[in-house]
Design a protein around this nucleic acid. Structure first.
Lengths: 158, 158
DNA sequence: CAGTATTCTTAACCTAGGTTAACGGATAGC
DNA sequence: GCTATCCGTTAACCTAGGTTAAGAATACTG
């Protein structure tokens, strides 16, 4: 599970979006960061990890990564393999929840409200029918008036 | 640790912001939600929890809650006490990380960029000095130009 | 049912932050 | 030391979403 120590130069990429087999990086010295690249090609920094911190993509053992991880300074890094057994038991619930929050943060930073709405509708179809629209707007981070407007604007386009 | 079953009516509040002694709620039937009330008094829904889901405020064992939890439908709920021993060991790292993400989501939804900037500067002063300002902007979810503008606008006001 | 309370929508107007582009200052590589 | 790249700033203009207010549609309640 401990895969050893890695010495990385500033700018080196440790993990790319789309990779399976994501790892966990513990920073002994230096500075790492993780970031997401959106559909328009823009970078959004998800987190910084200075000395003593741990950084990883919070995806389950079978998912491919959403994040890039690279070094902002020359760094020394301990690399760990994810513990698939633990992830399937206790810890898995935490990892899953972390992933949901991670995704939500990335979407809040990089995705327009109407797309977040679509994502919500397909991800939680059952909730959709049980709460008023204004609560979905609140979850999405916009006002009910804005959601109303966005839906109408989409209709008028088609 | 299992504190028993609770039958709640639509509208009932299970946890208030500011409370110590936060609990974990597992929904047997019905629908709960958690939300944050910002400084302007506006509600921001953090999460919905239908049947089978677990909902709680991801604060550590000594922190007071940031979130309200209430029932959107008549519900049956299992209540659990947080396991302080576990939280101080293994699981604590996950809880802490969840809390950071929870806070970031709430801030992205309810706090203007300049205040998020201040929060970042005081929370991570050491990172501040090691990365260019454009990366802080990226972390905050805004463009470098916008951050530049916001800082200048603040100066002109004083 | 009637009556009240929510919810959804629309519209006019406002504002925070995005886009594009240009410039000067700082850094890094050679 | 010279050049190229990156960084921060400014400015003009644009756009997504907020604010306020009002009306229509829907859902509760007695």
């Amino acid at each position: 599970m401990n895969l050893g120590k890695l010495i990385v130069k500033k700018g080196e990429i440790l993990q790319r979006s789309g990779e399976l087999q994501t790892r966990i990086f513990r920073v002994e010295s230096g500075l790492l960061r993780s970031y997401h690249i959106d559909s328009a090609g823009k970078k959004h920094i998800f987190m910084f990890a200075p000395e003593g911190w741990t950084i990883a993509d919070s995806v389950g053992p079978d998912q491919s990564s959403d994040l890039f991880i690279d070094a902002l300074e020359n760094s020394v890094v301990w690399v760990y393999e994810k513990d698939v057994k633990k992830e399937r038991k206790n810890v898995g619930k935490f990892v899953k929840r972390l992933y949901v929050l991670q995704k939500r943060i990335i979407m809040l930073m990089s995705t327009p409200a109407i797309d977040r709405y679509d994502h919500f509708m397909t991800t939680y179809p059952n909730i959709t029918q049980r709460v008023p629209q204004k609560m979905i707007a609140s979850y999405l981070g916009i006002t009910p008036e804005a959601l109303s407007k966005l839906k109408r604007m989409r209709l008028n386009k088609k």
